[in-house]
Write a protein that binds this DNA or RNA. Sequence first.
DNA 1: GTCTATAGGTGGATAGAC
DNA 2: GTCTATCCACCTATAGAC
Lengths: 184, 184
Amino acid sequence: MQDRILDVAEHLVQTRGFNGFSYADIAASLGVTKASLHYHFPAKAQLGRDLIVRYTANFLAALKPIDEGAGGAPEKLRRYAGIYADVLSKDRMCLCGMLAAEYATLPKPMQKELRHFFDENEGWLAGVLQQGRRVGELAFSGPPRDVASLLVSSLEGAMMLARSHGNAKRFRTIADRLIADLAA
Amino acid sequence: MQDRILDVAEHLVQTRGFNGFSYADIAASLGVTKASLHYHFPAKAQLGRDLIVRYTANFLAALKPIDEGAGGAPEKLRRYAGIYADVLSKDRMCLCGMLAAEYATLPKPMQKELRHFFDENEGWLAGVLQQGRRVGELAFSGPPRDVASLLVSSLEGAMMLARSHGNAKRFRTIADRLIADLAA
DNA sequence: GTCTATAGGTGGATAGAC
DNA sequence: GTCTATCCACCTATAGAC
C-alpha cells in the first residue's frame, strides 16, 4: 500500500506541485479514506521526504545501465536526457525540478534531500564529462562540474517550459542542441 | 493601494509560488484586513493575472534600453541575463518561471498571459540572435528561435536551482557559459 | 489496516456598518 | 476604502471502533 500511495502522490507532485495537492486527492484516487493514508504517512512532510528518497534511488538506478553500456560520453549524455524526455512524455515534470520551485515553502528534511538529488546528478554528469573530454569525445572549457550544473539546470528549465507550452518536441530540440554543443 | 498590493503579492509569488501564499499574508504585510484586499482584487485569479500583466510590461520595458544601447549582440545578451541576475540577487525567482512550475493548477487567464510572457521573451531574443549572426558577432546553427527558447529555458532553470542551492554565483557561471558558447 | 467522526486551523470570498 | 463579522469549503491530523 505504501508504494501505491507514493505512486499517486508522485504523480500529483509532478503535475501540480507539493502545495497543489492534498491527502483527499490521493484518497480519492485510491478509493480509500484520508485517515487510512495517515496510518502509512502520519505527516505530509514525511510523505514528501520519502517521495524524494524513492525518486532519487530510482533515478540513480536508471543511470546504472548507462554506465555499463557500450556507448561513449555523447551517447551517455543522450541517454541521460532521454530519462527526462520519458518523464515529460507522460506529461509530468521532474519531481525534483517541481519541488525546487517550491523550495522556500518545503520542510527542512525535504530541502536537504532535494539538494542531494541535484548533487548526485551533477556528480554523475561531471564524471561522464571529464572522461569524455579526456578521451577526446567531448570538448569544453573549465571545470566539468560547471558544465554539469548547466546541463541539469537547462534540462529542468526546458522541461518546465515545454510543459507550459504543451509540446514535448520543444524539449527534444533544446536537449539535442545542448549535447551537440559539447561534441568534440 | 493597488500597486502596493501587487508589490507584496509579486514578492510572495516569486519566493513561495502562487499556491504558497494567501490574502492573509498580503494583509499582514500591509497592515490591513483581508476584506480590504478583496475590494481591490475580488478574486485571487484576477490578482494573479494582473500580476503577470504588470510583470511582463515591466520586463519588456527593461529591454528597451538594451535595444537602444550601443552594444552589439553579445553585450545585449549579457544585459538580458543581467535582468535575471538582478532578480536573483534579491533572493527572488522570476515571477513567470515560478508560475510555469505551477502551470497545471493556474486559472486559464493566467496560463494565457504566462505563455505570452515567454513568447515575447523568445521573440526579442530571436531578433537579437538573428541580427548578431548576420553581422558575424554570433555563431550558431539552426533557427534563432530554437536558440532563443534554449536561452529562456536555461536561464529560468538556472535561477531555480541556484535558489535552492543558495548561491547566486552558480547562476552567473551558467549564464556566462551560455552566452560564451554563442560567440563567433 | 481501514473505517467514521471530528477537531482545530486556514483558504477564498461576501455582507453590511462606518 | 477599510473595517468587523461571518460563511463555507477545505486542509492536516487524531481518536477510537471494527
